[in-house]
Design a protein around this nucleic acid. Structure first.
Lengths: 143, 143
DNA sequence: ACAATAAAAGAGTTTTTAGTCTTTTATTTA
DNA sequence: TAAATAAAAGACTAAAAACTCTTTTATTGT
């Protein structure tokens, strides 16, 4: 469904969200441990997301990654778009470039519904919401 | 959603189905042209599917690929499983191995519905059905 | 039996995705 | 202001996916 990069990212972002809810920043080492991802890899990914404004970061001691009101309320869809692009929301299931309403592939109509479902879910689910759910179910983000 | 390999495969299999409905076998060259895939690549894929019993083939002149009653009625899901495995039907959206009902990730419940939708659609849609739809909408399988 | 045809098989190469190593830059606190 | 801390950046390696080339095997029609 998502690229590995994106999977790592969503887990990390939810972890950072949990920490932020507790008013804490968290560093790469802690994040990597919490979501069981390679340290340098998740660092790259978060740096990318930071540049794109999806997470905040500060250098130096007491620094780390965190969410403010704004980034905490962005939907998972934004992370997916930032890393995997919008192909999951738009592309034809059979990889046909010109597949469209007027020129549909054999799976077009049915897949439209599925993609809309995916889109709806990812757009309505915010990091804030995810970190909330987490609190109930016990922390669980390690692969 | 699917791997490129799988996208090529589904298009090719639908094309072979169309031909089979007309009582014709079709060769790699013709298939590759029809679905706009690299000849040797689609050959490999169809050989694989042939070994797995999802399409029939015969060597030599008058040979080629075709579907019999049985292969024509298999669902698209079988092609996907044969090439991409069942991860699209089963895996956790966040890549968590132990994600389950009792140990759910933050997206678990919602994604279950989506995956079920995908599963249902791909299981109910047969090659036969796809090649039927095609007849109405004009041939359209080139990427 | 032999030439032509077409799939099967094996062993590549290329490209993309995933992941690592090393150095630099910014920030804090003693 | 220097040492410690932590993210940023750049350049790299490894693995997987996508795709190609070459040879072999099976079948048919003459």
């Amino acid at each position: 469904m998502f690229s590995k990069t994106c999977e790592h990212a969503i887990r990390a972002m939810i972890f950072v969200a949990q920490k932020s809810r507790m008013g804490e920043k968290t560093g790469i080492r802690e994040i990597a441990k919490a979501v069981d991802s390679p340290e340098q890899f998740i660092a790259k990914i978060l740096q990318d997301l930071s540049r794109k404004g999806l997470v905040r970061s500060l250098k130096g001691p007491t620094g780390g990654f965190f969410h403010d009101e704004h980034t905490l309320n962005r939907p998972i869809a934004d992370i997916v778009k930032a890393l995997d692009g919008d192909k999951i929301f738009k592309n034809c299931a059979l990889g046909l470039k010109q597949c469209s309403e007027s020129h549909p592939c054999p799976l077009h109509e049915e897949f439209k519904k599925l993609r809309n479902g995916i889109s709806l879910l990812l757009e309505k689910t915010t990091l804030s919401k995810c970190s909330e759910v987490q609190a109930k179910h016990l922390v669980f983000l390690r692969r």
